[in-house]
């Protein structure tokens, strides 16, 4: 039973990261109807930023966090301004290709700047473990869980009661009406990109102590998070988070219980099996937004 709980918790922790990336997918998809396939690479960039800032700031973790978040927000805003605003009104497929290309560029540039070896960073909690009864829990897993929880609450409040959150929702629900009531739609879209990149940055910060930073970090993460977003219904942020958690837990469980029995890595593709199963039995995803997409 103890191992089960331990596996469950580390699965939740991995799932939180998937969930955060999936939320980024959903945010961009809902407001621009484009899937941003470079979302995982933004996480990678966040991880490298965290490492670099913490080196510059002599290991001041919290300041590095703040700087990373700000840098990622600026990056997201800039990417929209420079790249995606020019593509407004183009067919979604071309924009999607650009996001894939952006991912390649980000990975290459990160490789040139930081090299291809994993880089780790010291955090106040890096090797701490919480002993509780019989089982030991790495604090970094708990930090991931609480970090995600706090961010989710902030996002919830942001969308529920702030004026910008309300306009973001408005733009994603009916862009034409948003223009009609005088919402500066383009600026709101840029802010949505900034928010999405910020979430990716937070995911990167949380991930560094566990996986370190390397250019390919975001690749597999992005694909699995994409599966998570689809499992969650690709229309709601809570759904995305839930899909992420589900996939995280599933992976940990198969890694421990099924891999040794079958003697090969089922856990590596368990996420996609879940995706297929969900698509077969509930194609609309776990949580569906009330409104069908209007054509």
């Amino acid at each position: 039973m103890d191992t089960f709980i331990q596996l469950f918790l580390s699965g939740i922790s991995a799932g939180c990261v998937y969930g955060l990336v999936a939320m980024g997918f959903v945010l961009i998809y809902k407001s621009t109807e484009v899937v941003n396939f470079s979302q995982g690479d933004l996480v990678m960039l966040g991880a490298f930023f965290a490492v670099t800032f913490s080196q510059w700031l002599n290991g001041n973790y919290w300041l590095a966090v703040v700087f990373t978040v700000m840098a990622m927000a600026c990056l997201g805003y800039g990417v929209e301004r420079i790249l995606f605003r020019r593509l407004m009104g183009e067919p979604p497929f071309s924009v999607l290709m650009v996001t894939i290309g952006l991912g390649f560029v980000l990975r290459a540039v990160a490789g040139m700047i930081w090299g291809h070896d994993p880089q780790s960073m010291s955090t106040p909690y890096s090797d701490a473990r919480l002993a509780w009864g019989d089982f030991l829990l790495p604090v970094r897993d708990l930090v991931v869980i609480f970090g995600t929880l706090i961010l989710s609450v902030i996002l919830f409040i942001f969308f529920k009661s702030s004026r910008i959150g309300l306009t973001m929702q408005a733009v994603s629900q009916n862009q034409f009406a948003a223009y009609c009531v005088g919402i500066p739609v383009k600026r709101v879209l840029a802010l949505t990109w900034a928010l999405s990149a910020t979430i990716a940055g937070v995911a990167g910060i949380l991930l560094v102590p566990i996986k370190s930073a390397y250019p390919q970090l975001g690749l597999l993460l992005g694909i699995k998070a994409f599966a998570a977003a689809i499992v969650g219904g690709f229309g709601s942020l809570p759904g995305a988070l839930m899909g992420g958690l589900l996939i995280g837990v599933l992976e940990e469980m198969t890694k421990f219980y099924i891999d040794p029995v079958l003697e090969f890595g089922v856990s590596e593709f368990s996420a996609y099996i879940l995706l297929l199963v969900i698509l077969l039995i509930r194609p609309q995803g776990l949580i569906t937004s009330m409104q069908r997409k209007k054509v």
Binding site: Q169, Q173, Y179, C180, P184, V185, K186, M290
Partner: peptide, 28 residues
């Protein structure tokens, strides 16, 4: 001029086919 600036100048536009924000409340 950008549409949001035109709205700020005092031109309101009630578009065809009652474009509302369906998931937001009436008051929102």
């Amino acid at each position: 001029i950008e549409p949001d600036k035109i709205v700020r100048l005092g031109i309101a536009h009630v578009p065809e086919g009652r474009e509302v924000f369906p998931l937001l409340s009436t008051e929102e």
